[in-house]
Design a protein around this nucleic acid. Structure first.
Length: 462
RNA sequence: GGCGGCGUGGCCGAGUGGUUAGGCAGGGGCCUGCAAAGCCCUCCACCCCGGUUCGAAUCCGGGCGCCGCCUCCA
């Protein structure tokens, strides 16, 4: 069973499933008011890989990721562009899924939208007010964090110690700077929902706690997300569950930053690259490789240089798929392939051990890269069946992390196709001047030209 | 101020008290009509200073430097 670093207990521990053979897993999805950036790409890739790995190991994974379709940023954008909030949300949700499809992140099992859970949120807030852990102000309803046992657990600090560094609070009605809005009172022009404590709209932290518990039920297994949501967002979700006496996530796991130079990539610093742009220029699988090549909790450096580097590494993996006639994609492997050689089984076991130990994808990939060399060398010696078995283990394990290798270009234009055939004819006639001229022509058209047993093969240059 | 993390070879990036991480890039060779891909070999390392130890890049102490959180942020 997978062991992960738990952000609440601050140690690596095994998942303890609430239901046998079934994993309940939640992550906060995007607020849909802008294009997704590389940071979104990283966290979705990391947790997609974890989800797939659990699935590969025979578990059924209920994976919930919400869409926050109402918040200040959406309202502002709608006002600026003369659209409704719903239009803005729909537009950027579409961009989100386009990007997710492009990087190969599988759809969650459930995709709750915040605006469809407002009634449940109102119910929770009502209960918190009745229990006197939440209070009303002129602009909404706030949770009184001083009444929450263990507030600060995810931050790794006590409330008192958090107070020391708190910035000056503008809202004088709040009892503590860490009290947060469960409900924002209606403002003219904003979308509002009715509530016994005054019309308005839900606060962000309330959305996630209601949707996760609503779909996965109390005491679900794993709550994941990017580091920057750890505090205060996740802390505040947890605080509401505690205040409502509802068992919440059994485990918390967080993935690291995307760095640009020495700085964290973030919306507030404005130093972000949109995922949409990156995908347009790069084989999106290279980004997955880049992400998996470092530990999920470490910061990763994303630059033109590191992306190029990953693309070249990916090319090496793809060359394995070109050489061996083995299945290579997630959908090819409903379960572990049968009849693997002892060496292939050994690789599988070693990789499994590493991934189960806090999802050590970099070491697992190192083993796979070594196995790729070994498979090639084995085939060079003519031991085709052993080589193929090892290659199969590689493609199977990579697919288990969501990395699907590719064989050849799916589309080669007719002109290039015919140049390649001409070149084959010239080579057969030993007219090398002619065949080299044809190769130059193909290279100029952006192809990498390789000789294979089946004749000239073309693939796209990086 | 509090809390957390990091400092590894040209670049990215793991890891362990003694044994090659891995990838990319560089050098040499094999293969090839020549290439490409592949294979083999190879250069380059663990911020500084003490300590523990037979032995530390790995443990302890002290420095220095960097990053993050404590506010919306994946």
């Amino acid at each position: 069973m997978l062991r992960l670093y738990d952000s609440l207990t601050h140690d690596v521990r095994e998942l303890e499933l609430r239901d046998q053979n079934r994993v309940s897993m939640y992550t906060c999805g995007p607020t849909v008011y802008d294009l997704p950036h590389l940071g979104h790409g990283r966290y979705t890739l990391v947790w997609d890989a974890v989800r797939r790995w659990l699935t590969y190991n025979g578990l059924e994974v209920d994976f919930v990721s919400n869409i926050t379709d109402i918040d200040d940023n959406i309202i502002n954008r709608a006002a600026r562009e003369g659209k409704t909030e719903a239009e803005v949300a729909a537009e950027y949700e579409q961009h989100w899924w386009d990007a997710m499809d492009a990087i190969g992140v599988a759809r969650p099992t459930h995709i709750p939208h915040a605006t469809q859970y407002v009634a449940e949120m109102v119910e929770l807030i009502d209960k918190l007010i009745a229990d006197d852990v939440a209070y009303r102000t002129s602009d909404g309803v706030y949770l009184d964090v001083s009444k929450v046992e263990g507030y600060g657990g995810l931050a790794g600090q006590s409330l008192e110690s958090l107070q020391v560094g708190a910035r000056i609070e503008a809202n004088l009605e709040k009892r503590s700077p860490f009290d947060f809005a469960l409900w924002k009172a209606a403002k003219p022009g904003d979308p509002t929902w009715p509530a016994p404590f005054g019309d308005g709209r839900p606060g962000w932290h309330t959305e996630c706690v209601v949707m996760s518990l609503g779909l996965l039920g109390p005491d679900f297994d794993l709550h994941v997300g990017g580091q920057d949501l750890r505090f205060p967002h996740h802390e505040n979700e947890r605080a509401q569950a505690i205040a409502a006496h509802t068992p919440f996530a059994r485990r918390w796991a967080h993935s690291g930053w995307v760095m640009v130079g020495e700085e964290k990539m973030s919306k507030s610093l404005g130093n972000f690259t949109s995922l949409t742009d990156m995908i347009a220029k790069t084989d999106a699988r290279a980004y997955r490789l880049l992400v998996l090549r470092s530990h999920y909790r470490s910061p990763i450096e994303v630059s033109a240089a590191t992306i190029d580097d990953a693309e070249r590494g990916l090319a090496r993996l793809d060359s394995l798929a070109r050489r061996f006639d083995v299945p290579t994609t997630w959908s090819d492997f409903a379960r572990r392939p049968d009849g693997l050689s002892p060496r292939a089984l050994e690789l599988d076991a070693a990789v499994t051990l590493l991934l189960d130990d806090d999802f050590n994808t970099p070491q697992a990939l190192a083993l796979i890269f070594e196995a790729v060399s070994e498979a090639n060398a084995t085939a060079d010696r003519g031991e085709q069946s052993d080589a193929e078995s090892l290659a199969l283990a590689c493609t199977y394990l990579l697919a288990g992390m969501g990395l699907n290798l590719r064989r050849a270009e799916s589309t080669i234009d007719e002109e290039s196709q015919s140049l390649a055939r001409e070149r084959d004819a010239a080579r057969a006639a030993k007219d090398f001047a002619r065949s080299d001229a044809l190769r130059d022509e193909l290279v100029n058209k952006g192809w990498i030209v390789e000789d294979t047993a089946a004749g000239t093969s073309l693939r796209r240059a990086l």
